[in-house]
């Protein structure tokens, strides 16, 4: 009986964690999905995420409005995306290396400028009590849902629809599958990729704002440890499908919540191992979902990472 209720506590905590922790994964992976669909990879979204978190926190603290913080984080992310997009269109420049450089530069700059914001408390984003119908307090906490999560869900649906049904989606997909075809149709490959990378950066910045303004809800240098990178890996797992990105983000959120959830019922042994669960999961998923023999289904033809 006791074991049963503990099990349900862990399950509920993981559900709550999946919803809470998944939002940054969701935003970063949607941004990366758009970028990769256009045929370019941005490994620097980890740096964008951290910088967005810092900017969002600082802006919310200065203005008193967490939503302005979200906007500021998005703009900062867009700037990073634009820098990546601009540099990568130069000839002979390796987009993977530029991503690594931007990752190091973004985290460094965020730590540098964010130093004064480690102590003060910025206003947090509100949440919607969608669990009010239940009398189970744990379920109520689990269903305290942040509006950004719903925005992310809507965005995933919108992108999934737009890739299939709109002119814009077609252009992005064509640029990603065959640059010569896009050129022949009279579209500027560089411009499409530049815009896709910039918007991707914007989304990653918003994901960062969620980290610092909602959960965990403060700015520190250890805020994101590899979440942006995991989100990039997640896009491959999701086969460049925005809806699958949503599902994968939930899965990663649940994996990330495993360590704290077990700790809450008193299982402290192996805490550090369970904390490594998302990384191990990412690696296992990458091993299971890739193949050296054939191109992955749904992979954009121009993408350097799958070649």
């Amino acid at each position: 009986m006791n074991g049963d209720s503990q099990f349900s506590i862990v399950l509920l905590a993981m559900l709550a964690g999946a919803i809470r922790v998944s939002t940054p994964f969701l935003f970063v992976s949607l941004g990366e999905c758009l970028t990769e669909k256009s045929g370019r990879i941005n490994l620097g979204l980890e740096g964008t995420l951290v910088f967005g978190a810092m900017t969002g926190y600082a802006a919310a603290y200065q203005t008193g409005s967490p939503w302005l913080g979200v906007v500021a984080a998005g703009i900062a992310g867009a700037v990073f995306g634009a820098v990546h997009g601009y540099i990568c269109k130069l000839p002979k420049v390796n987009d993977i290396a530029v991503g690594i450089a931007l990752m190091l530069f973004g985290t460094g700059l965020a730590f540098f400028l964010g130093k004064p914001y480690i102590q003060p408390q910025a206003p947090r984003l509100p949440s919607l009590p969608l669990g009010a119908w239940s009398d189970n307090p744990q379920l109520q906490t689990a269903l305290q849902i942040n509006p950004l999560f719903l925005v992310g869900l809507a965005l995933a649906l919108l992108m999934w629809w737009a890739f299939r049904n709109t002119r814009f989606g077609l252009i992005v997909r064509m640029t990603g599958d065959s640059a010569p075809a896009a050129l022949a149709m009279g579209y500027s490959v560089d411009l499409v990729r530049f815009l896709a990378t910039t918007i991707g950066g914007f989304l990653a910045g918003v994901g960062g704002a969620f980290l610092s303004l909602y959960y965990p809800g403060s700015w520190s240098e250890g805020l994101s440890s590899g979440q942006g990178l995991m989100a990039v890996a997640l896009v491959i797992f999701a086969r460049w499908n925005p809806l699958a990105c949503f599902g994968a983000a939930l899965l990663f959120g649940a994996a990330g919540a495993l360590g704290p959830a077990l700790q809450s019922v008193g299982v402290t042994a192996g805490y550090y191992f369970f904390n490594a669960a998302p990384y191990v999961l990412t690696l296992l998923i990458m091993i299971a979902s890739t193949s050296p023999k054939r191109a992955l289904k749904g992979a954009p033809g121009e993408l350097s990472i799958t070649k």
Partner: peptide, 14 residues
């Protein structure tokens, strides 16, 4: 397995 070495090596760091 065709796993991208950049991402895999950084995950292994964590």
């Amino acid at each position: 397995r065709g796993v991208n070495e950049t991402i895999a090596s950084l995950l292994l760091f964590y």
